[in-house]
Amino acid sequence: MAALVGLFHSEQQQADGKMSALAVPEWPSGWLDGIKQLCELDSVHLSIPITGLGEDETMHVEICSSAWRESRLDVIQRRQPRIPSCRCGTAAARAMRTNQLVKYILFISCYLFWVASGVMIAVGLYAKLSKESGAVDSLLAEPSLIVIIVGVLTFTVTFVGCTGALRDMPLLLKMFAVMLLLIFVLQIVAVGVAFLFSGQVMDKAAFLMGKAIASYRDDLDLQNLIDYIQKKFQCCGVRSYQDWSRNEYFDCSISNPSLERCAVPFSCCVQEEEQNVLNTMCGYGTQNLKAWKAESMIHTGGCLEKIVTWGQSNLHLIAGLALGLLAMEVVIFFLAVTLIYQISFIIQKRTNVKRES
């Protein structure tokens, strides 16, 4: 190609709507070969000195590789760099996307908790529907309802987070961040209240455990839970084995016609090493015995004290798990906030580009 012919628009000519053609002097062969090699790879943006064109004698031009493939060269004046019209927008498209690492780490984290909450809801519903008829008068005394409520709350929060992260929806991400922050604050407040008012917390726990003992025979799920706790911690009752008199079936009053009068559940019994058959009547009549005499047959210590002792001995494990959960919530929260700012920045950038064009 002996010479380059370019179409130039000056500011005055743009105002008049006219165009003029200018023949550019012949280029050295080395320049043309270099430009050809670059254009075969991708589009090229160059600043080429041309005499007689402005004070700095420099014009910004855009050369597209498609021009070489069509055996021609288009030279277009660019007073201010713009997004090129040729197929060279890969970098610009990437700049208009959110950080994929942040996006999918947030999505996977929410998805795992979402699946776990769905399993919790299914287990709670199965336990609720398959248990024997009868109800308890306290919500906190029915484990299946607690599992369902916690599962529904977790499912809702994580579903909002999953959808917002996957679809880049700032409104859902803001809702998710607010709910997560609220949960985090409530957890901190709960820990602080439990530490400052430990005596009242212990009394409340004892009251709720007493309510559970009173409803032992009314709810199969609750019965299995109490039996598990008493076997696990080798305890009986809330503060002592005589707390089982709160249950109408185990009440020691003379007017009680039950065969389990003055008894305790079999889960309170001391299991013999060679015992292969479970004796469900091992606790009959033990409430009438003194503690020193009954301790050879049943566990006489209360479960509340045993649970507190276990918590104190495993304080580092409990604190580590609690801090790990809180740290995970903080990381997920900042991932959501980061994604929100990235989406807002992209929206603002697209708006500015539309205004300029």
Score class of each variant (00 low, 15 high):
294 A>M: 13
123 V>D: 00
184 F>K: 13
24 V>A: 02
114 W>D: 06
247 N>G: 06
181 L>K: 07
37 Q>N: 10
275 Q>F: 02
33 D>V: 03
15 A>K: 02
78 R>K: 10
314 N>F: 12
205 A>L: 14
261 R>F: 12
7 L>H: 11
277 V>F: 05
67 A>L: 13
299 H>I: 09
47 S>P: 08
1 M>W: 08
344 S>V: 01
100 Q>E: 05
301 G>N: 15
43 S>P: 09
265 P>N: 02
246 R>F: 08
119 V>Q: 01
131 K>E: 01
331 V>N: 11
73 L>E: 05
149 I>G: 02
292 W>G: 11
310 W>I: 07
348 Q>W: 00
308 V>F: 10
90 T>V: 14
117 S>Q: 00
244 W>L: 09
342 Q>G: 00
92 A>W: 14
309 T>S: 09
223 Q>V: 00
115 V>T: 02
124 G>I: 02
279 N>P: 01
144 S>Y: 02
49 P>K: 04
337 V>Q: 03
238 V>K: 05
225 L>D: 03
334 F>G: 04
54 G>V: 06
2 A>P: 03
235 C>W: 15
318 I>Q: 10
190 A>K: 05
66 S>K: 15
186 L>N: 09
302 G>L: 04
255 S>Q: 14
149 I>Y: 11
226 I>A: 04
170 P>L: 05
350 R>F: 01
298 I>K: 09
201 V>I: 05
322 A>V: 14
76 I>T: 06
95 A>D: 15
86 C>M: 04
355 R>E: 00
102 V>C: 15
276 N>H: 04
270 V>F: 05
113 F>K: 13
27 W>T: 03
222 L>Q: 00
51 T>K: 08
125 L>W: 03
158 T>Y: 08
